[in-house]
Amino acid sequence: MSWLTNYVRPKLQGLAGKRDIPQNLWEKCPSCGAMIYHRELEQNAQICTQCNHHFRLTVKQRLDILFDDARYDEIELPEVKEDPLDFADLKSYPDRLKSARKQTGRPDAMTVASGTMEGQKAVAGVMDFSFMGGSMGTAFGEAFITATELAALQDAAFVMVTASGGARMQEGILSLMQMARTTLAVRKLKEKGLPYIVLLTDPTTGGVSASFAMLGDIAVAEPGALIGFAGARVIEQTIRAQLPEGFQRAEYLRSHGMVDMVVDRRQLRHTLGTLIDLLRRPVSDKPY
C-alpha cells in the first residue's frame, strides 16, 4: 500500500511535533460525534477513525503532512503596514491581530515553506483559518506573491492550501485588491510554466474562493471541505429555501465540475507528488 508507506513518517518527527500536550486527550468528531483518543487521531492524519471526517489541521500539522519526512524550510515573509485604515469595530484591529498572533504563534494567516513532495520540488502556502478566519489582507497578498516568486526562483511547483472565510474586512478596499494581486501572481507563475496546484480545505469561501483558489491548474479538495462563494446563511435568506444536503461540500463541487478530485488526506502527498511529476516531466525515465 503505497499511501501507507508514504504517510508513515519517522517517529522522532511525530514526537517533536507534539511538544505541547493537547488539553483534551479525547476529541469529539464534529461529524459523527465519536470520541477519539488524540494519539489515534494523530496517527490517522487527524481523520476520524469512525466516519473519515477530516479534522481541520494546524499549519504545522499541514506542513508535516505535505512535505517528505515532515522536512521543510519556512520562509520569512515581507512585513506590511499594520492597520492601514486605523480600523476599529467593537475591538481595534491591532488588538485583534495581537490576540490572533498570541493564539497561533504566527504573524498572519499565511505560512510559506519549501521542500519536496515525493521528491518533487515544491513551495507550499498554507492558510490558517484560526488566524482571524484565515482572512486575506495585505500581509496575505504579499505572502502569496512571495510564495509564487520563490517557486519561480527555485523552479518548483506551487501548492496552495486554502482555508479562509474571505477578505479581511478590517483592511477594507485594500483587502479586496488582494483578489486582483493574487490572481496576477498566479498568472505570472503560469507564464513561467510552473504547476499551480490548489488544495481546497475546510472552509474556503468569499473573496479567496473567487480569486487564486479557483485558478489552479489542478484543483484538489479535501473530503467534506466547505467550498463556495456566498455563505449558506446569506443564500438561504436570498432564496428563502433550505439548501440541499451536502451543498458546497467538496464532493458537491466535484460533481458540479468545479474541482478535479477529492483526495483522502492519507494519500495527499502521494497524489501531489504524482501530479507534479506528471506535469513537469513529460517523459518518464522510469522503466515501463
Partner: peptide
C-alpha cells in the same frame, strides 16, 4: 448569492473574470 450561482461556479467565474 443564490443556489444556482454556487452550482455553476460563482467563485470560479469571478476569478476568471479578474484573470
Amino acid at each position: 448569492p443564490g443556489l444556482e450561482g454556487e452550482e455553476r461556479g460563482q467563485a470560479e467565474a469571478i476569478a476568471s473574470s479578474i484573470d
